[in-house]
Amino acid sequence: MALNLLHRHVLEDHILGFHGGANPNHLSVVRRPVIFSVLAHAGREGQVREALAKAEDIAIRACGPSEWLAVSQTAGAEHVAAQLSAIPGVSLAEQSDGKVLMAIAGPSVRRILAKCVAVDLHPDVFAEGQSANMMCCHVVANLARTGADTFEIIVPRSFAGSVFEELTEMGREHALTASFLDA
């Protein structure tokens, strides 16, 4: 007897209440991102950082000294793992099933996030391409600035519902909408 297992996203029920088109301020949830933790071995940090910067179809998110998240919305886990494994001096672990990736964008994104993070997100301070681990909605998250008014947030799967609910509440006065990215 074959089992038919369907992937059900942890935020499926949270997004049910959001219908209609996206407003200028919008929270997108990525259904199936590929996420790996990457650690550089002692003394190899510089070489690993350079090699990660050259990886194709992978966005690199800084987490701390010698630690990154490798994120892809286009490449499969096998492709990402192969690229990362080819880098000398790294240890890696796939985190795709344990993390949730959300992107929040719009003209009011900094005002919304200012209610959730204790970091200065002014463009002169938190530059495009910059990322860091921080508290977001009382949960340890990785926040990355991916565009002029766009940020990505990666949180543990077990806290994704709480973070989603708090972000949508903080964005209510700015007419924040939400949907799955592929919806």
Rank of each mutant, 00 (worst) to 15 (best):
M1S: 09
M1E: 05
L3M: 07
N4G: 00
R8T: 13
V10I: 15
L11T: 08
D13W: 11
G17D: 12
G17W: 02
G17M: 13
H19E: 13
A22Q: 06
N23D: 12
N25R: 10
N25T: 12
L27Y: 11
L27H: 11
S28A: 15
S28C: 14
V29L: 15
V30P: 06
R32M: 11
R32Q: 12
I35R: 07
I35E: 09
I35L: 10
F36I: 07
F36K: 04
F36E: 07
L39M: 12
L39P: 03
L39K: 04
A40C: 05
G43D: 07
E45L: 09
E45F: 00
G46K: 10
G46I: 03
G46L: 06
Q47K: 01
V48T: 01
R49N: 02
L52C: 08
L52G: 02
A53K: 14
K54H: 02
A55P: 09
E56P: 10
D57L: 15
I58S: 01
I60D: 07
G64E: 07
S66W: 00
S66D: 12
S66N: 08
E67N: 05
E67P: 12
E67H: 08
L69Y: 10
L69A: 08
V71R: 03
S72K: 02
Q73D: 12
Q73C: 07
Q73T: 15
Q73N: 09
A75C: 10
A77Y: 01
A77Q: 10
A77M: 14
H79I: 08
V80H: 04
V80S: 10
I87V: 02
I87H: 00
P88C: 01
V90I: 10
V90Y: 00
S91K: 04
E94C: 06
Q95R: 15
M102S: 09
A103E: 11
A103F: 11
A105D: 11
G106A: 13
S108I: 04
V109H: 03
V109L: 14
R110V: 12
R111P: 01
L113V: 09
L113S: 04
K115E: 08
C116L: 15
C116W: 00
C116Y: 01
V117D: 03
V119G: 01
V119P: 08
D120A: 02
D120F: 00
H122N: 07
H122P: 11
F126V: 05
F126H: 04
E128C: 13
E128R: 09
G129C: 08
G129D: 08
G129M: 06
Q130E: 13
S131D: 07
N133S: 14
M134G: 00
M135F: 04
C136Q: 00
C137R: 00
V139Y: 02
V140N: 14
A141S: 15
N142A: 13
R145A: 13
A148H: 08
I154Q: 03
R157I: 10
S158G: 07
G161W: 08
G161Q: 15
F164V: 05
F164T: 03
E166V: 13
T168G: 06
R172L: 14
R172I: 03
E173Y: 01
E173H: 01
H174K: 06
L176Q: 05
T177W: 01
S179V: 11
D182W: 05
A183H: 11
